[in-house]
Design a protein around this nucleic acid. Structure first.
Lengths: 365, 365
DNA sequence: GCCATTTATGCAAACGATTGCATAGAGCTT
DNA sequence: AAGCTCTATGCAATCGTTTGCATAAATGGC
């Protein structure tokens, strides 16, 4: 069907091996035949067959990205970044969707390795550590966004403690003392880490932690709605809510709309992770950007490094670092407002906050 | 490294060919050796090498999906659907992102064919018709969402004329007579078709078309905002706006928020295509669902059909149909309201509408 | 100008599967 | 029991590359 190396060799009246060497650039070929072959190959429209090549070399020029879904905005940009980077290097991306399901993840991993992928970037479910560990002997693997504690695979993570800290501190600096937190389940790393950042910021500002203000749940809109209701129903509701996940934000927004709570007038809202419509929303929603682009780029860097190392068989490409943290940053839009320490908003009974009046200190930062 | 067919054959003390036949099920093998080999293969953890198999059979068990981006919600669900369907059939999906760029599309197509993909579902840019046409001789191709007029490839399309008609009629039935339309560029099929559905619904209801109410532009938020402003600045602004694209909806919502226009109190809003947050938004946004799921499923069906036909070499799998239309449907939520024909909303000078008073007729439908 | 060295080429064996063809038995018929 | 068919197996070629090894050609040193 298509033109093969043999055809090119015949046309040039050389052997297939010479043709191969000339076109791949490897090995010894005279300048002249080299150029002649390149020309002839071009004229004939020769395109190497990656399958045949792969059979011999054990490589496929395929790199897989395994994420949980595509509805998550972070995964979308990661997929786009990874695809773009890989494509520029002549790799094709195999995008797989695992749905955060260990069984699906396991199956997919098997298939991918069958296909002799050259590398893998995976957002692990955390339940297939052993398998990942085994596979990593055959193919370079980098974990993304989540760590699989059962492995010591190289992992690129968002700096969730810092992100949550940054966001919380921002709210504190705006004068908020009662800050509601809607966070992920505490059996996930990100859930725990975001809580810890929040707690640290409070502690630094000398604000006592109030567990009534902290709610955890799955990263879905329903959680956001439920937790928001609980927070707003408090005898002394928070003046700001930090939603540590973008899906949950949907639920929070619905509740505030239902109850006619003005943002940021009655309530400041800060959100973790960006969504494309956040800046179009009125008010535009301030966020802590988890740096999805940077995460993806770094993961690709690390993967390429390992793939390279493997190719040259200089070790496994580990540079001794197991965990990379990508910094989060605050993007201020219009959903958080400075509040006057003396006039708490919407609180039924406005007895003085229990915090140690660190408002002045933090406000001037 | 991994266990090959040869290993299995040796362990079972048969030839490689027997092993192959037993495991693939093809050809003649005695019941006993067949089962024995299956057992041994399982024990040894044998997994066929798709690359080696592909070299011989010319197949790869890879099917590519080429879309413009992943930020578009429709493409997201399509990608998820295609992935899920293919996976169940033992195929891996190669997801490629072309960015609606002809050059990128062309490059990607070449690479994909090099990789001997077994099938391709593509949202064409419309600029690489010749290439697609050529490729379709080697590999089954189905176009999705957009038609490439330079080809006669089988194409699965949304029924945009019907969808736009449905949406417009819904608004008319609610009593609206001045319905603004924000639609895609008129040099795209979808832009033209959505306009035509709108026009037909008006005509049927005996409402005169008013070009001041019709605005076209790119499918981006900015367009939505600009067009919304133009519409709302009219001397007699529309009582409803039909936004024929979800990206543009962002812009419209921003403008209505800025101007403090209540939805659906002051203005009814109907949108084309769904986004995950539409139902969480307050008011929940009514939409015309373009049927992304159905589109993707049908595209997969057709592709499989063609792949099957090719495998059995019974023609090219064309069933004579070149174009499939997937019906749109209306999903009513809370952003459209019935208006009283006698009291036009927010219009400065409320002279009677120019329509031939078909309100009664359409309202009772 | 001859031998040693380098450089360029070709031959043929891989890679791991599939598959047409040949053949060795098993089972039947007569 | 001979002849026949039919089934189960093995042999070997093949898919399109890459690559180790052998060899031919070219170069250089003396």
């Amino acid at each position: 069907m298509s033109v093969t190396l043999k055809d090119v060799a015949q046309a040039a009246r050389v052997s297939v091996s010479t043709a191969s060497r000339a076109l791949t650039g490897t090995g010894l070929t005279s300048e002249r035949t080299q150029q002649r072959l390149v020309r002839i190959a071009r004229e004939l429209g020769y395109r190497p067959n990656p399958i045949a090549r792969g059979l011999k070399t054990g490589q496929s020029r395929l790199v897989a990205l395994l994420v949980h879904n595509l509805t998550n905005a972070s995964f979308q940009v990661m997929a786009e970044v990874v695809q773009a980077r890989l494509k520029a290097l002549g790799y094709q991306m195999l995008l797989c969707i695992g749905g955060d399901d260990p069984q699906a993840e396991s199956d997919t991993l098997t298939t991918l390795v069958d296909h002799r992928i050259d590398g893998l970037i995976v957002v692990p479910t955390g339940k297939n550590g052993a398998q990942l560990e085994t596979l990593s002997k055959d193919v370079p693997i980098v974990c993304l966004v989540r760590r699989d504690d059962a492995t010591d695979l190289e992992t690129v993570l968002a700096d969730d403690p810092q992100g949550a800290y940054l966001g919380t501190r921002h709210l504190i600096e705006l004068g908020h003392k009662r800050i509601g937190l809607i966070v992920g389940r505490q059996d996930t790393t990100s859930g725990r880490e975001r809580l810890s950042g929040y707690v640290r910021a409070l502690r630094e500002a000398g604000i006592a932690r109030d567990d009534a203000l902290i709610h955890a749940g799955h990263y879905v809109p329903e959680t956001g709605a439920t937790c928001a209701r609980k927070l707003l129903d408090l005898r002394r509701p928070p003046s700001a809510i930090f939603v540590a996940n973008h899906e949950a934000t949907l639920g929070v927004l619905r509740v505030t709309a239902e109850r006619n709570i003005a943002i940021p007038g009655d309530l400041s809202l800060l959100c973790y992770e960006d969504m494309p419509w956040f800046e179009w929303h009125r008010p535009a929603i301030s966020i802590v950007d988890n740096g999805a682009r940077d995460l993806a780029n770094l993961a690709v860097d690390r993967l390429l490094h390992r793939m390279d190392a493997k190719g040259n068989s200089k070790g496994n490409g580990s540079d001794g670092v197991r965990e990379y943290r990508v910094g989060a940053r605050l993007i201020q839009r219009d959903s958080c407002r400075r509040i006057d320490a003396t006039a708490p908003a919407r609180s039924a009974k406005s007895k003085p906050s229990s915090s140690k009046s660190s408002a002045a200190k933090s406000a001037k930062v």
